[in-house]
Lab assay of single mutants.
Amino acid sequence: MGFKLLSKLLVYLTASIMAIASPLAFSVDSSGEYPTVSEIPVGEVRLYQIADGVWSHIATQSFDGAVYPSNGLIVRDGDELLLIDTAWGAKNTAALLAEIEKQIGLPVTRAVSTHFHDDRVGGVDVLRAAGVATYASPSTRRLAEVEGNEIPTHSLEGLSSSGDAVRFGPVELFYPGAAHSTDNLIVYVPSASVLYGGCAIYELSRTSAGNVADADLAEWPTSIERIQQHYPEAQFVIPGHGLPGGLDLLKHTTNVVKAHTNRSVVE
């Protein structure tokens, strides 16, 4: 069995187990497998329904001669939608809004960016022009300005110390501490036991640490421990890039980060 097929099978099995364990909360999309990078042309966006009122959005972007996937989250909030992270750029984010209108038909009224990198804030200006209120932590807003990236308009308070959590509509926002970046936030959907790890969490097929220019490698494993301790009931975990899975993604990420750190020390 090929690795790609095995990865998709694991996603399907995880979703099936969740649907059985929580039949009222989960209505997993039966329309197909989780979209992969090879299936999404740059400039297009796919939506994948995880649970009743919960979707991931998947886009792709060219970077350094390669094409990478990027995940975000959409959560229903009454007759409105909360968006977590842009679709990595203005063109993708405009396509995301169009796809949401086509498939869901509810307005996106608020959006949260989970850290300051372009795959999370690139497209904020498109959201703002569409009347979406954009939010991020003060740290993310400051770092985005320093980096020359787009800056969300509103500040999220109460997320300055490791372990801080605040309720934001249908989700809980959690600051686990520094990891992929010093400002990275985690998003949890309690009604569906869905954990969105953003770039602080890796997919299972990833074996290298990737972009760690703004990471705190020493603190990252401790931050992941905080996530595990705060959300032990999480059933569906979405990484910032690639295929979702279960809580095993947290341990896998820790292993990859520690291996990278150990290699760096040896070198």
Rank of each mutant, 00 (worst) to 15 (best):
Glu150Gly: 04
Met1Arg: 03
Gly32Pro: 08
His260Asp: 11
Gly242Leu: 04
Gly242Gln: 02
Gly43Met: 06
Leu249Gln: 01
Asn149Pro: 06
Gly240Lys: 04
Ser31Cys: 06
Leu10Ile: 14
His260Asn: 09
Met1Ser: 03
Val256Asp: 03
Val146Ile: 11
Ser22Leu: 11
Glu203Pro: 04
Val28His: 15
Gly177Trp: 03
Asn255Trp: 12
His117Thr: 00
Thr222Leu: 11
Leu173Glu: 02
Ser181Asn: 01
Tyr48Glu: 15
Glu267His: 11
Ala218Trp: 10
Thr109Val: 13
His180Ile: 01
Leu185Ser: 04
His260Phe: 07
Leu81Gly: 03
Gly78Lys: 08
Thr134Gly: 01
Arg142Tyr: 10
His230Gln: 11
Lys102Gly: 12
Thr254Met: 12
Asp64Lys: 07
Ser191Gln: 12
Ile84Thr: 02
Phe3Leu: 07
Arg142Gly: 12
Val124Glu: 03
Val45Lys: 01
Gly245Val: 02
Asn71Ser: 14
Ser31Val: 13
Ala234Gln: 01
Ser27Cys: 14
Asn262Ser: 11
Ile100Ala: 07
Ala178Val: 07
Ala178Ile: 07
Ala136Cys: 06
Leu159Gly: 02
Tyr196His: 05
Leu247Asp: 09
Thr14Glu: 03
Trp55Leu: 02
Ser162Val: 11
Val256Asn: 02
Gly198Cys: 05
Pro221Ala: 09
Tyr12Trp: 13
Leu185Ile: 09
Glu157Asn: 14
Gly197Phe: 02
Ile84Lys: 01
Tyr175Asp: 03
His180Lys: 02
Val146Gln: 13
Asp77Glu: 09
Arg110Trp: 12
Leu243Asn: 15
Val37Ser: 15
Asp52Ile: 08
Val45His: 03
Leu185Tyr: 02
Gly123His: 04
Gly210Thr: 03
Gly122Val: 07
Pro244Arg: 04
Ile58Tyr: 15
Asn71Arg: 01
Gly65Ala: 09
Ile224His: 01
Ala200Leu: 10
Gly105Pro: 07
Leu73Pro: 05
Gly177Asp: 05
Arg142Pro: 04
His241Val: 00
Ala144Ser: 11
Ala144Trp: 04
Val166Ala: 08
Thr109Asn: 13
Arg206Phe: 15
Cys199Lys: 00
Pro69Gly: 15
Leu217Ser: 05
Val108Phe: 01
Ala90Asp: 14
Ala259Asp: 14
Ala165Val: 13
Leu97Gly: 01
Lys91Trp: 13
Phe3Lys: 09
Gln61Val: 15
Ser264Thr: 11
Gly105His: 15
Pro239Phe: 03
Ser16Thr: 15
Ser155Leu: 13
Asp77Met: 06
Ser38Lys: 06
Asn255Lys: 11
Ser31Trp: 10
Ala218Ile: 14
Ile104Asn: 04
Leu127Gln: 00
Pro232His: 13
Phe3His: 06
Gly198Ala: 07
Met1His: 02
Asp79Pro: 09
Val121Phe: 05
Gly2Arg: 10
Asp216Tyr: 06
Ser31Ala: 11
Thr140Gln: 03
Val171Tyr: 04
Leu247Glu: 11
Ala19Pro: 15
Ala87Arg: 00
Gln103His: 15
His180Ala: 00
Ala218Glu: 13
Glu33Leu: 08
Val28Gly: 10
Arg263Ser: 13
Ala165Cys: 06
Thr36Ile: 14
Ile186Arg: 02
Tyr34Ser: 15
Ile201Leu: 12
Ala66Gly: 12
Leu247Asn: 14
Ile151Trp: 06
Ala234Lys: 04
Leu250Ser: 01
Leu9Asn: 13
Ser22Asn: 09
Phe174Pro: 02
Val121Ile: 07
Gln235Arg: 10
His252Trp: 05
Arg206Met: 15
Thr207Ile: 15
Pro23Lys: 10
Asn92Cys: 01
Glu219Gln: 11
Leu106Thr: 09
Thr253Gly: 00
Ile224Met: 05
Arg206Lys: 15
Leu9Pro: 11
Lys251His: 07
Leu24Arg: 10
Gln49Arg: 12
Glu39Cys: 06
Tyr68Asp: 05
Gly158Val: 05
Asp183Ser: 00
Gln103Gly: 10
Leu250Gly: 00
Arg263Gln: 14
Asn262Met: 14
Ser30Lys: 15
Ile151Pro: 03
Ser22Ile: 10
Pro239Thr: 02
Asp79His: 09
Gln235Asn: 13
Ser62Tyr: 03
Ile186Thr: 14
Thr261Ser: 11
Leu73Asp: 00
Glu80Phe: 07
Ala95Gln: 12
His115Cys: 00
Val194Thr: 06
Ala136His: 04
Pro138Ser: 08
Ser160Arg: 11
Gly240Asn: 05
Ala133Gly: 10
Glu33Ile: 09
Ser181Met: 02
Leu97Met: 08
Ser56Gln: 14
Ser155Gln: 14
Ala213Trp: 07
His154Gln: 11
Pro170Ala: 12
Pro23Asp: 11
Leu204Val: 13
Arg110Asp: 06
Glu101Leu: 08
Ala111Ser: 13
Ile201Trp: 03
Arg110Ser: 13
Ala90Asn: 08
Phe116Tyr: 08
Val266Ser: 13
Phe116Glu: 04
Val112Gln: 04
Glu157Lys: 10
Arg76Phe: 06
Ala87Gly: 04
Tyr188Phe: 11
Arg206Tyr: 08
Asp125Ile: 05
Asp79Ala: 10
His154Asp: 11
Gly123Pro: 04
Ala218Lys: 09
Ala259Phe: 08
Thr36Asn: 15
His115Ser: 00
Leu81His: 02
Gly72Val: 01
Gln61Ala: 13
Gly89Glu: 00
Glu150Ser: 01
Asn92Ile: 03
Ala15Gln: 06
Phe116Leu: 05
Tyr231Gln: 01
Leu195Tyr: 04
Pro107Tyr: 07
Val112Asp: 06
Lys4Leu: 05
Val189Tyr: 04
Leu143Tyr: 11
Thr93Phe: 02
Asp214Tyr: 05
Ile58Ser: 14
Tyr188Asn: 04
Leu5Tyr: 09
His230Pro: 06
Phe3Asp: 06
Leu195Ser: 00
Gly163Ser: 09
His241Arg: 03
Tyr34Asn: 12
Leu5Ser: 13
Ile104Ser: 00
Asp29Ala: 11
Ile74Pro: 01
Gln228Trp: 10
Arg141Asn: 08
Ser38Glu: 10
Leu73Tyr: 00
Glu99Asp: 11
Glu267Asp: 13
Asp216Ala: 08
Asn184Arg: 00
His57Met: 00
Ala19Tyr: 11
His252Thr: 02
Asp79Cys: 05
Ala218Arg: 12
Pro23Gly: 09
Thr261Phe: 09
Val28Asp: 10
Val67Arg: 15
Arg76Ser: 13
Gly32Val: 09
Ala15Thr: 10
Val132Ser: 05
Glu44Val: 10
Ile58Met: 12
Ser31Arg: 09
Leu143Ala: 09
Lys4Gln: 05
Ala51Pro: 03
Leu24Met: 14
His117Trp: 00
Ala178Cys: 05
Leu73Asn: 00
Tyr188Trp: 13
Ser162Cys: 06
Arg206Val: 15
Ile20Glu: 15
Thr254Ser: 10
Gly198Thr: 07
Leu9Cys: 12
Val257Glu: 03
Ser70Gln: 00
Tyr175Glu: 01
Val146Gly: 13
Thr222Asp: 13
Ile84Trp: 01
Ala200Cys: 04
Thr134Val: 05
Val266Ile: 10
Leu127Cys: 00
Tyr48Asn: 15
Thr261His: 09
Asn71Pro: 00
Ala215Met: 05
Val237Lys: 02
Ser31Tyr: 14
Gly163Asn: 10
Asp79Val: 10
Leu81Thr: 06
Glu39Phe: 07
Asp125Cys: 03
Val256Lys: 02
Asp183Lys: 01
Gly177Ile: 05
Ser161Gln: 14
Ala215Thr: 06
Arg128Asp: 10
Lys8Gly: 07
Ala192Glu: 11
Ser137Asn: 09
Val237Cys: 03
Ile186Ser: 04
Ser264Gly: 11
Thr60Met: 15
Lys102Ile: 12
Gly123Lys: 04
Ser160Asn: 13
Leu173Val: 14
Gly163Glu: 09
Phe174His: 02
Arg226Ile: 15
Gly169Gln: 05
Tyr48Lys: 12
Val189Trp: 01
Ala234Leu: 06
Gly246Gln: 10
Ala218Ser: 13
Val194Asp: 01
Asp85Glu: 03
Thr253Val: 01
Glu147Cys: 06
Glu267Arg: 11
Thr109Ala: 11
Gly123Cys: 05
His57Asp: 03
Tyr231Cys: 05
Asn149Thr: 09
Phe236Asp: 08
Ile17Cys: 13
Tyr188His: 06
